[in-house]
Write a protein that binds this DNA or RNA. Structure first.
Length: 572
RNA sequence: CGGGGUGUAGCGCAGCCUGGUAGCGCGCCUGCUUUGGGAGCAGGAGGUCCCCGGUUCGAAUCCGGGCACCCCGACCA
């Protein structure tokens, strides 16, 4: 490709509305361009990167016996009504009315369509197992897109779905996908951490997320460096210790103005761990009263899983009228009409300070079980920096991560809903066991851009770079130099090496800076100076110095260099 | 959805407070000079000042409403 023909221009100044470093460089380099919030066009350079990522995905999915398919983007509403997600999922699911008042959805994921394929096509256990995958557009009407490709509304996902006769068979297959995913990420130059995760709207029994550890990540991860435990904070457990003491008598004390745990603790000169914190949520029109120890935070994911509701939101003050709750001075004592959920630690703890449900007063020595009854005792507290690992007791660490992939054991949630059954060897009809696996293609590219760059620009790994070589031609107005540059371009192209040949009438600095900005791994320079020595200058994007090779040996040297860099761990 | 911010040339911005012929830098086009890390000079093209309404002799500027985009939060496979 000649640079003079390439569509898309590089920008010296980034558009003002881009914030993250990797995204700025993708914009400046002309890889992608936003059309609307979270909706992007891929320009030729970006498309080449994406195409290479997808090729790697196809190779790895085919290697674990995946069969590529292409499923529709537009689905009839009925299918989503059958599984119930039409009703469960909010405005994130884009709906529209087609001709003849037919309600349709834009696919945000494809479990429904796959389960439908299964019910139409699978009859016997002899047809199982198998795995289907596709690389295709999804639309999720996110309330707020951000971070460029990291969180888009329209995006490309490689999604895969496996079908099994038994849960045990899925258990055998699941690790193969796990390993294939790690291979994909490694070949693309990132090394995500696998963490346990919440099943969220997908349902099912078990889920893992592949998290690229980047500061711009929106997920908080809980990591134990000692034993390797790693989980999304939404589900992370930790060891909770408490001293059990003899219960002391309840006592009301005046605590004027102490409406927060911090104020209360300093007023009473006690630690926050000697208090109980009350937080209120609404699940539909049901009020949930959550109690955790004062030094901890309620984990909404854990809480909603414990209560068994899909959606929770903080309660507003007016929704608490009539319950007896006095915000700032609340405890479950004397409260009515709410579901009281108590963290397992609070249930075991003794003599905590809690609200008196009276403005300006608290109660000393409250004890769950004696002074109030929990409707539910569960782990509903968020793990925090320094908390003790539930497996080994060592301190946990928090880190930020971007979810580049996930794998879910769905079980029979979708197949049962749609009646996708098969006959087992005994002639008994059973629901097909299903799992789904996803990787966000754009997000993966966004992560590579974010994590692999310097002050001059992007640094693509050879495996997914838009071109392997950036050929800088200088002094091209000089006939012999131009001929030599054209000749080198032709030889590289004939050798099927991907070259972006900068044949523009620009100054050297412009070309060098563009080569750096675009992040192409290997740079070759030919000029009257190098031609005089019958040489070509060669420089890696990652190196600060260049070398020289004789013109006749260029092809071989480039081939060898690229082959060396193509190895699976080339970017380590 | 709550809070904050921004919409003026392809990109970055000034002008708005105090209403009166729409500007600067980069980029783009032409010419000359220059030529190994984002050149210089000269000339030039390019604008529904986000949209609708109002006030006014006159609105980029003041007022009202809307929309879009960005940031923090809520939300999120």
């Amino acid at each position: 490709m000649r640079r003079s023909d390439l569509f898309g221009e590089t920008l010296r100044q980034a558009p003002a509305d881009a914030e993250s470093g990797g995204y700025v460089l993708l914009l400046r380099g002309g890889f992608v361009q936003p059309l609307a919030a979270g909706i992007f066009s891929y320009l030729p350079l970006g498309w080449r990167v994406k195409e290479k990522v997808e090729r790697i995905m196809r190779e790895e999915m085919n290697a674990i016996d995946g069969q590529e398919v292409q499923l529709p983007v537009v689905h009839p509403a009925e299918l989503w009504q059958e599984t119930g997600r039409w009703y469960e999922i909010g405005p994130e699911l884009a709906r529209f009315t087609a001709r003849g008042d037919r309600e349709m959805v834009l696919a945000m994921t494809h479990e429904e369509v796959v389960a439908d394929l299964l019910r139409r096509n699978v009859r016997s256990y002899r047809q199982l197992p198998f795995m289907l995958y596709q690389i295709q557009t999804k639309f999720r009407d996110e309330p707020r897109a951000r971070g460029g490709l990291i969180r888009a509304r329209e995006f490309t996902m490689k999604d895969a779905y496996s079908a099994h006769a038994t849960a045990a068979d899925l258990d055998r297959y699941y690790p193969r996908v796990h390993d294939a995913y790690l291979a994909i990420f490694r070949r693309c130059g990132i090394h995500p951490l696998v963490v346990e995760s919440d099943v969220g709207m997908m349902g099912g029994s078990m889920a893992h997320e592949f998290m690229d550890l980047l500061p711009i990540g929106e997920d908080l991860l809980v990591i134990c460096d000692a034993c390797g435990y790693a989980a999304n904070r939404q589900v992370a457990t930790f060891r909770k210790a408490t001293r059990e003491e003899e219960p002391l008598p309840l006592e009301e004390v005046a605590t004027p103005g102490a409406a927060t745990i911090a104020d209360l603790a300093s007023f009473l000169k006690i630690g926050p761990e000697q208090t109980a914190k009350a937080t209120f949520f609404m699940a539909g029109d049901r009020c949930i009263f959550a109690v955790v120890r004062g030094d901890m935070e309620v984990n909404e994911t854990k809480l909603s899983n414990a209560v068994g509701v899909g959606e929770l939101r903080p309660a507003r003050a007016e929704e608490l009228t009539g319950t007896g709750i006095v915000p700032g001075y609340a405890s479950p004592i004397g409260v009515t009409g709410v579901t009281v959920v108590v963290d397992d630690l609070v249930a075991r703890a003794s003599n905590l300070v809690a609200g008196a449900n009276r403005e300006g007063y608290h109660l000393l020595n409250t004890n769950a079980g004696r002074d109030y009854q929990a409707d539910l005792v569960a782990d509903i507290a968020s793990a925090f920096e320094g908390a003790a690992c539930s497996s080994c007791g060592e301190p946990l660490r928090l880190a930020r991560g971007v979810e580049v992939g996930n794998i879910f054991k769905l079980g029979t949630r979708y197949t049962a809903a749609l009646g996708a059954t098969f006959l087992d060897p005994d002639g008994v009809a059973r629901d097909i066991v299903m799992a789904s696996y996803g990787i966000g293609v754009d997000r993966l590219i966004g992560c590579v851009a974010e994590g692999s760059r310097d002050e001059k620009g992007l640094i693509w790994p050879v495996s997914i770079a838009p071109f392997q070589i950036y050929l800088v031609g200088l002094d091209l107005e000089q006939e012999d130099v131009r001929e030599a540059a054209e000749d080198l371009y032709r030889r590289l192209t004939d050798a099927r090496i991907e070259v972006l040949y900068d044949d523009r009438a620009e100054r050297a600095g412009v070309k060098f800076n563009d080569a750096d900005l675009l992040g192409i791994p290997l740079r070759l320079t030919i000029s009257k100076r190098t031609l005089g020595r019958d040489e070509v200058e060669i420089k890696w994007r990652t190196e600060s110095t260049s070398g020289s090779i004789s013109r006749s040996a260029v092809l071989e040297a480039v081939r060898a260099a690229l082959a060396g860099a193509e190895g699976p761990d080339a970017t380590d």
